[in-house]
Computed example of a mutant assay.
Amino acid sequence: MKFIGKRGRLVIALTLGLLLQGCASPTTKSSAGGPDAKAAYQQHVNLAKQYIGLKNRELARIHLSKAERFQNAVDKARLSELYNGYALLYQSELEMELAEKYYRKALVSDATDSVARYNFSSFLYNQERFEEALEQIVLVSEDLDYRRRPQAFYITGLVQIRLGDAVGALKSFERATQLAAQFALPYLEIAKIYFDQKNDELAKQSVLHYIGLAGETAEGLWLLVQTELRMGNSQAVLENGTKLKILFPGSDEVVKYEGLLK
């Protein structure tokens, strides 16, 4: 019996820092070069990221265009931020060819830009280009200075699962939890792997750890129901199944649970 569930599409979590209030353009007076131009470039790029995060594509496009006017004032490596911004914008508009073009431009500008590479790997994952996604995300996970390394290992594990490498995925998910013990999602994936391996005690332990961090979710409760069922704990199956029906009525997991009872 394998885990009956889903592994959804990745959502790129943009870490944009403190959002600036209002929609005002930068007030820095800038020439074609020099520190003012560099500051204007960075300010427009940051505003574009903010508006992409707010799903305001029109203002994001305006600020990316303004940043582009100052691109000659900055080092080539810093252009990766501009290209990454365009890639995210085009991806949000489902212009996938343009998005990929700009992700690649970002990485040509700065091969050490782990933010752009992380976003590109997520993009490739959502395109179901798993081998390419793995190649990119492994490089991100090796960047010791990248603060989203736990998420990089988590994505690595998701890709490895899709490529049929459960052993490698388990190691990646465990590495994610070692780097960020409060990061809930890897524990759920670890539980799924143990469940598929028929290691029910560790599956139950891992899913309970996940629920302890993330709270009760439809996917977590459904996995717990399946685990308790195989362990022969009929009362626990009923209790968790009832929670599932009350908390998540109409969910796919409830439909599966009701099918289990027939």
Rank of each mutant, 00 (worst) to 15 (best):
E128M: 07
E128I: 04
R129F: 02
E131M: 07
E131P: 00
E132K: 07
L134E: 06
E135V: 04
Q136D: 00
I137N: 04
V138N: 07
L139G: 03
D143M: 01
D143R: 11
D143F: 09
D143H: 05
L144R: 12
L144E: 15
Y146Q: 06
R147M: 10
R148T: 10
R149P: 01
Q151W: 04
A152V: 06
F153H: 14
F153D: 04
G157W: 01
L158P: 00
I161F: 00
I161V: 09
R162C: 00
L163R: 08
L163E: 11
L163K: 08
D165A: 05
V167H: 13
G168H: 09
K171S: 12
K171N: 12
F173D: 02
R175A: 13
A176D: 02
Q178N: 12
A180Q: 05
A180K: 10
A181F: 12
F183G: 09
L185A: 15
P186C: 06
I190A: 05
A191I: 10
K192H: 04
Y194H: 15
Y194S: 06
Y194Q: 12
Y194G: 02
F195I: 09
Q197S: 15
K198D: 09
D200F: 15
E201N: 12
A203G: 11
A203L: 10
K204E: 14
S206L: 05
V207F: 01
V207G: 08
V207D: 05
V207Y: 09
L208Q: 12
L208M: 11
Y210V: 03
Y210R: 07
Y210N: 04
A214C: 01
A214T: 02
A218Y: 07
L221S: 02
W222S: 11
L224A: 07
L224V: 08
L224Y: 04
V225K: 01
Q226T: 03
Q226C: 04
L229H: 11
L229I: 08
G232S: 08
Q235H: 09
N240S: 14
N240Q: 13
G241H: 09
G241C: 11
L244V: 10
K245E: 15
I246N: 14
L247E: 08
L247Q: 14
L247F: 04
